[in-house]
Amino acid sequence: MHRFYDRIIMPIISSYKSEKIVEIGADLGYNTSKILEYCKDSGAQLTVIDPYPRFDEEELKEKHPYLSVKKTLSLNALGDIDDYDTILIDGDHNWYTVYHELKLIEQKSMKKGKFPLIFLHDTDWPYARRDMYYIPDSIPSKYRHSYAKKGLVPGSLSLSDDSTINPWFNHALYEGGKRNGVLTAVEDFLEETPLPFFFHKAYSNNGLGIIIPEDQPLNKIVTRIVEESGL
């Protein structure tokens, strides 16, 4: 997601004047560091949710006291965070997790009457229509597709032993179908939610989905930023 930050995410959160930000999935902290610079300049706060962040948490907190880190799965943590206006989702790239992250966000949003800003990575190939599981046992069996640690092949629905594209991850054996993939989760959620919204997409770097509250001036700003980004 950090590849979208300078040209899309930063201009949008600056225009929205985001004050309380949640980041799901930090990994090495590339995007986290960028968000923290925004927080430093704006006075915003950042909560990171990642069960296994690969950065020095204490060092980063010492430098940025407006950072908090929750080392647990997103579906465990989101219910305990009561107030945020912006959330970046780049954690477990599968239908079950993303759909239920959005449902938890919806529950909080219903009290306020509108969505926060939501950014979602991997809304294009390879995980738009195929589940990937970091921890397969964390997904209830009825929502978990048959999977294997094999690589991905552009243009192929099935996996390959010979592919060098993410062969170390647990992938659903086949692409497409019901309850399979990040974009499918987003579409299923948006079809059901009673809250008004606009949805935008950028297609490079595995895809970025952007859900924003139904706000015409903001929608014009986001449309312009996405179009001018060239991503």
Rank of each mutant, 00 (worst) to 15 (best):
G79W: 09
G79V: 10
D80N: 09
D80W: 01
I81P: 09
I81K: 08
I81Y: 12
I81M: 02
D82R: 14
D82N: 15
D82M: 07
D82Q: 14
D83T: 13
D83A: 03
D83S: 08
Y84P: 01
Y84F: 15
Y84G: 07
Y84T: 05
Y84K: 11
D85C: 06
D85N: 13
D85I: 10
D85V: 11
T86W: 10
T86G: 02
I87C: 03
I87P: 04
I87F: 01
I87T: 10
L88Y: 14
L88M: 14
L88I: 14
L88H: 12
I89T: 06
I89M: 07
I89V: 15
D90R: 05
G91A: 02
G91D: 10
H93K: 03
W95T: 00
W95F: 11
Y96F: 10
Y96H: 13
Y96E: 07
T97C: 03
T97F: 06
V98P: 05
V98I: 15
Y99R: 08
Y99M: 05
Y99E: 11
H100E: 01
H100Q: 09
H100G: 06
H100N: 15
E101W: 07
L102C: 08
L102Q: 09
K103V: 09
K103E: 12
I105G: 13
I105K: 13
E106S: 08
E106I: 04
E106R: 00
E106D: 11
E106C: 01
Q107M: 14
Q107C: 06
Q107P: 02
Q107G: 02
K108I: 01
K108Q: 10
S109N: 13
S109A: 15
S109F: 04
M110W: 12
M110P: 04
M110D: 10
M110L: 13
M110F: 09
K111Q: 14
K111N: 09
K111F: 06
G113A: 08
G113F: 07
K114F: 08
F115G: 10
F115I: 10
P116T: 13
P116K: 08
P116H: 12
P116V: 07
P116G: 04
L117D: 13
L117G: 14
L117S: 13
L117P: 11
L117F: 11
L117N: 14
I118A: 04
F119C: 01
F119R: 09
F119E: 12
F119T: 08
F119S: 06
F119L: 05
L120Y: 06
L120D: 04
L120H: 05
L120N: 03
H121G: 01
D122W: 06
D122C: 02
D122Y: 01
D122L: 00
D124Q: 01
D124E: 07
W125N: 05
W125V: 00
